[in-house]
Design a protein around this nucleic acid. Structure first.
Lengths: 87, 87, 87, 87
DNA sequence: TCGCCTGATAGTTGCC
DNA sequence: GGCAACTATCAGGCGA
């Protein structure tokens, strides 16, 4: 039976499978990140400090993004379409 | 200059770049997962229930793994080396 | 002075005191737990195995709770209010 | 049967029970702490800042304890028994 | 849309 | 001293 209790079981199963597959990929990448930190540690770097650096760079990026968004806003307000931005 | 403050700046930069690249991939996958939930929701499924189901399936797997671990512990405690386990 | 910098210093102090008191109690209990493990070890039990057992029992309980939660979700999703549950 | 596989099952069970009882108490206290933070929040305090305060005070205490330990060491080295210290 | 709350992640501590 | 478990913090999802 492919339709139990009014639910398309096959479709539901497909969604769950896709999600689980993606979560495995995500986990795999998390492990890769851990590996890089471990490798860096093996080369004498302090993982904790590195994490701090990564965090700060991400923050900087966020701020730059906000800046860009504000710039777009201004340009639009001035009737000037902004140039295409790369993703 | 490639060595500032006693650290190999190039190597450090390479590590950080690798990490940031991986974190982008991870973020991308997280977004994909959100998309799947959104799509499922669009097909009439309850995201909250789906999340619970996914979580419980993961839990089940963890439980099975723990059971194996406990068995190993018992065997060791009893001085019986467990048979080779496949990865 | 009981109001410095616009905050009711006395009240804040009271909250902090309560928290610190509770954290001391918590620490004390953690120590008690460690003592029990040590005592068990002194009686020939393997602490690692015991921890695993305790963890699995907790896991079992969580699983049962999750099952209940899922049931509730299903009932809600089907528009059926679940019966009152005892704490 | 009270002795299975060479293990005094009753004694083991007693240890596990004691541990689980203590962990429940610990959990209860953790909940109490959360409640205090929530109450403080309801009174207009920022929980995050409060946590920072508590952390700093704990750190201060640790440093004071180290200082005291060092003092004891010195006094002993000088053949001078330190006065009784309140807990 | 905002606030809350649960789940994910990072840091700390204890064990081997 | 490294590793694993546990705790505390943080962020994203959900409900009002």
């Amino acid at each position: 039976m492919t339709n139990a209790g009014g639910v398309a079981a096959d479709q539901l199963r497909a969604f769950v499978d896709r999600i689980e597959r993606l979560e495995e990929e995500k986990k795999s990448i998390s492990d890769d990140i851990k590996d890089v930190y471990a490798e860096a540690k093996g080369n004498g770097y302090d993982a904790k400090v590195m994490r701090q650096v990564v965090r700060m760079r991400k923050q900087d990026k966020n701020e730059r993004d906000e800046m860009d968004a504000l710039l777009d806003l201004y340009l639009h307000a001035l009737g000037m379409a902004p140039g295409k931005k790369q993703a």
